[in-house]
Write a protein that binds this DNA or RNA. Sequence first.
DNA 1: GTCTATACCTAGATAGAC
DNA 2: GTCTATCTAGGTATAGAC
Lengths: 204, 204
Amino acid sequence: MTDTPPRTRIQQRNRETILGAALEVFSQHGFRGATLDQIAQAAGLSKPNLLYYFPSKEAMHEALLAGLMDTWLAPLRALDPGGEPLDEILGYVHRKLLLSRDFPRESRLFANEILQGAERIRPTLEGELKTLVDQTAAVISGWAREGRIAPVDPYHLIFSIWALTQHYADFDVQVRAVLGPGKDDPFDGADRYLATLFSRLLTP
Amino acid sequence: MTDTPPRTRIQQRNRETILGAALEVFSQHGFRGATLDQIAQAAGLSKPNLLYYFPSKEAMHEALLAGLMDTWLAPLRALDPGGEPLDEILGYVHRKLLLSRDFPRESRLFANEILQGAERIRPTLEGELKTLVDQTAAVISGWAREGRIAPVDPYHLIFSIWALTQHYADFDVQVRAVLGPGKDDPFDGADRYLATLFSRLLTP
DNA sequence: GTCTATACCTAGATAGAC
DNA sequence: GTCTATCTAGGTATAGAC
């Protein structure tokens, strides 16, 4: 998607440093809220130097979003239509939760984008994402028809998995505020809770 | 919370017009992304006139957030510890979903705020919200101990209700992109799905 | 490749006429 | 109370030296 023409090692390294800093700042403040000053400081580079590597602030943002989509859809692609239905779905939930735990900034970048209308990624949502979800929904419906899981609306099942797993990354501040300090990592509790929730829903 | 000193009718009306316009713009673009020009246009007033009614952009935002919290917590407060446990919880889910359907802008305003660190409302989260959730969690734990619902982590149960209901407002764009045009209202499907989901989880 | 200096614009807020 | 005009800060991007 993003072309990555041959570069020197130092160029590669700086590009990655900048994208890391940009992810940090964009995910916390949104596109408009982020400033090049903040990104430059986080990257340890000067502001003009950022613009030597990327033509504009917009270009940094696009590079991040383009790289993100594949990572984000990987767990869903990994769902095996030939596997044991309940295991496959619980495995998907687990992998998606780990993704939220390990990549919260990516999750928030994505959430910011959707929340604010998804202007930049709507084509991907209506194309690549919809196609993948349609395929997966067909698999799940098949499992339900065969009686291997309880009858369920496959689309809302998938939405609920997204909502629940991403909530722990995107609303992390609220989760921690409510749980208070000194509790276990919210993700541990979530992992157990979600396994129970979907087992009960889907066991025939 | 927000003091509303005696005003003329026209003042009241203009304040409300402005807040409505501000909600529209803030919820779509976030605080930083919103501009006074946009709000002024949405309100049909001039930019300086906005600042006659509110001392600053920040003040508009605070007025919205202050008014929002009560509305947002009302369905949880309405949960009756003396009621039939499953009915009470399913009723809460239903009311919360209706709130998302009927007040999506408020939901997104709140989501933007949490997502970006909740600087302005963290005290409320750690105070009023935590207290209310702690109380409700105690009630739910009691029900579980008495065997009136299945054993469940009450905090994660509440988080999951928030995540699922708000998802349909906050990620509306994504939901509609995936479902495609011409389908039923996502909220109808969600209502049925969530009732099933929580019935199965909580039935002893 | 990286810096300093700066151009240029957008956007929040104010002054003052009406 | 509402407007036009304007001030000012901050932010993106560029020029040009090193």
